[in-house]
């Protein structure tokens, strides 16, 4: 068995998928934590928003104080603090061999789907409406994308999602061809390029 086949096999395994899920959820948790602390500091200091913050390349404190950053009336990052630990627990259990029921996995898929939608909505809002970007928010967008890819992979592999038969078999073909890997890498690279083109050197200045 050559290296590619071995790699392909490994990519379909529980160990790999749950490990990816664990790392992505962990990264997201760290980022959410930093953003939550920032939000509290910002709330405590009414002057914090009265300037152009260099480290966040924010267009001038706009992200943290925008309504988009507090969609539900509290900082969005708090949602991450609630959800990510649950996903980490699921990943650890899965990694160590727990079999989840189909219903449970559908629930997990639903949660990450909502997280993904929310993360990209925020990404678009901050890039094109607020016109600002913060590295930690970007980290959340990234890891949520990876998380979604891993869980979807798992659920397609196990045929958990009650998809129409044609779609299910098409998706399985994608997985067999590792097409999902190409799409994910392409997508992430495209996002990095987009961010660099738009914000360039300012991001790390």
């Amino acid at each position: 068995m050559n290296l590619f086949d071995r790699f392909h096999r490994f990519r379909q395994s529980d160990a790999w998928l749950y490990a990816v899920m664990m790392i992505a959820a962990g990264a997201s948790l760290v980022a959410s934590f930093v953003l939550s602390v920032d939000a509290i500091v910002l709330a405590a200091d009414p002057n914090a928003g009265l300037g152009c913050n260099i480290n966040q390349v924010i267009s001038c404190g706009a992200v943290g104080t925008s309504w988009q950053a507090n969609l539900l009336g509290f900082p969005n990052a708090f949602l991450g603090l609630m959800i990510e630990p649950v996903l980490i627990a699921v990943a650890i259990a899965g990694f160590s061999g727990t079999r989840f029921t189909q219903g449970f996995m559908i629930g997990v898929q639903g949660i990450v789907l909502i997280s993904l939608g929310f993360a990209y909505w925020l990404f678009l809002q901050s890039s094109f409406v607020i016109g600002a970007l913060c590295p930690w928010c970007l980290a959340v967008t990234f890891s949520t994308t990876v998380l979604f890819a891993a869980i979807t992979h798992l659920n397609i592999r196990d045929d958990n999602l009650f998809l129409p038969r044609k779609l299910q078999s098409a998706m399985e073909t994608w997985l067999r061809l590792d097409l999902d890997l190409l799409v994910l890498i392409g997508w992430l690279v495209a996002m990095v390029v987009l961010v660099f083109v738009k914000y360039g050197a300012a991001l790390f200045a």
Binding site: H8, D178, L179, L181, L182, I185, V189
Partner: peptide, 20 residues
């Protein structure tokens, strides 16, 4: 045939990553 296609796709993924 699939293994062949898979290899091409894996190379493409590697290529994209390498270029990046």
């Amino acid at each position: 045939k699939e293994a062949k296609v898979r290899r091409i796709i894996s190379f493409a993924a590697l290529g994209v990553l390498g270029l990046a």
